[in-house]
Write a protein that binds this DNA or RNA. Structure first.
Length: 97
DNA sequence: TACGTGACCATCG
DNA sequence: ACGATGGCCACGT
């Protein structure tokens, strides 16, 4: 049984603390069978006005995925104190859990 | 049913 | 350490 993987994904998303980030793959692994691509897809389809921290999700290589909102994502992470190294990678300490 | 797609990932050179 | 490569797999059409 895999009731609304999407719901599990969003629940986990909502639990990521401010100032921390996690990856598509890690979120997927916490659910009952979602894949990283499904996580990405769930984020892409989020409605406009939602309050979920979509910007706290990055790739396994600790970079921002390529998508239209990437510039805003970078800005929002910086704004809440997530440190980036010189080459645009989020520092390992910012990873959640 | 079949096929293309993608906000990915692990592996390898 | 970093880019290229191939795999994976749920979804929509």
């Amino acid at each position: 049984m895999k009731p609304a993987l999407r719901e599990q994904i969003l629940t986990i998303l909502a639990a990521i603390p401010e100032g921390r980030v996690t990856t598509y793959g890690r979120i997927a692994a916490m659910t009952d069978g979602a894949t990283p691509r499904l996580v990405a897809r769930a984020l892409r389809e989020l409605p406009e006005g939602h309050a979920l921290p979509w910007f706290r999700v990055i790739t396994a290589s600790r970079r921002l995925a390529e998508h239209p909102g990437a510039p805003e994502q970078r800005q929002r992470l910086l704004a809440e104190g997530v440190p980036f190294d010189t080459r645009g990678r989020v520092t390992a300490e910012a990873l959640w859990p």
